[in-house]
């Protein structure tokens, strides 16, 4: 199960990198960036995951076997932070893309090259 999830994370990242680098549409690039980050988030989540793990909350019942059986809570906190960052970057990128479209009347990144050299 965990191995399959690792493969899924790597496939997500590869798809994201492919979309960011090769697509010429600005919106598609931003979507690719999002897929890439989602792959990283999945990767982070799997790092802290355990087969048949319990939620990382200490109670009187589970304090004996808590350390060996609970999943790692830290990556989840990291992913939460990272999602917020990713959301704001995506929002900013989309706003800037609309403003670029207003000025250039295109979202083809090969035609937005007035600043070459």
């Amino acid at each position: 199960m965990i191995v399959i999830s690792y493969y899924a994370a790597v496939i997500f990242m590869a798809l994201g990198i492919y979309a960011v680098v090769s697509k010429e549409n600005l919106i598609k690039k931003i979507i690719g960036l999002n897929i890439f980050t989602m792959g990283i988030h999945l990767f982070l989540i799997i790092i802290g995951f355990k087969e048949n793990g319990i939620a990382p909350i200490i109670t009187a019942l589970n304090s004996n076997y808590f350390v060996i059986s609970s999943v790692d809570p830290l990556p989840q906190a990291l992913v939460l932070t990272s999602i917020v960052i990713d959301l704001s970057v995506t929002a900013l990128a989309l706003i800037t893309a609309t403003l670029v479209y207003d000025k250039f009347k295109t979202i083809d990144t090969n035609k937005i090259n007035k600043l070459e050299g």
């Binding site: 090259n113 600043l115 070459e116 050299g117």
Partner: peptide, 17 residues
């Protein structure tokens, strides 16, 4: 070297990769 800075975003992202 100057012509390589073509202003194309995909090119720059390829450089990063």
């Amino acid at each position: 070297i100057k012509q390589a800075h073509s202003g194309k975003l995909s090119m720059y992202l390829l450089w990063v990769l």
